[in-house]
């Protein structure tokens, strides 16, 4: 689905990347722990998170994350939004929970990103 459709669906504010509404969001990964993002995500994923630390945008840049949806009404600092704008990474902020956001996106065709499960992790 398109980014602007995602924003409408989860009733999100667009904090960065307002001009990129046609971006295709087809895969996502939902997590608050950035270590897990670094360990598990693969390819062109959208990140769904409640983590608004300064590291979020740096991890997104390193991993080539294509968009970030902040849940539970979380909003990153303006400096993070400004950096996202520079990098061309759209940021959305929704008041919905992570669970509800994931459910809505999944129900509209967004699928899990490929990941690399940790073999020895229980």
């Amino acid at each position: 689905m398109r980014l602007d459709d995602v924003a409408t669906l989860v009733e999100a504010d667009v904090l960065a990347g307002a001009g990129r509404g046609e971006l295709v969001i087809d895969r996502a990964y939902a997590v608050d722990l950035l270590s897990d993002v670094l360990a598990l995500t693969d390819e062109r994923t959208t990140l769904i998170t409640g983590n608004v630390s300064p590291q979020v945008i740096r991890v997104a840049e390193i991993l080539n994350v294509i968009a970030i949806v902040f849940v539970r009404g979380k909003r990153p600092a303006p400096s993070i939004a400004a950096r996202a704008e520079q990098l061309g990474i759209p940021l959305l902020s929704t008041k919905k929970t992570m669970f509800e956001t994931c459910g809505l996106l999944y129900g509209n065709g967004v699928r899990p990103c490929k990941n690399r499960p940790v073999e020895t992790m229980e």
Binding site: L33, L34, S35, A39, Q55, R116
Partner: peptide, 15 residues
């Protein structure tokens, strides 16, 4: 609390 300490750092570097 900042989203680190999942115990994935060194294992992730290794693999």
């Amino acid at each position: 609390e900042l989203g680190f300490g999942a115990g994935m750092g060194l294992p992730n570097m290794q693999r």
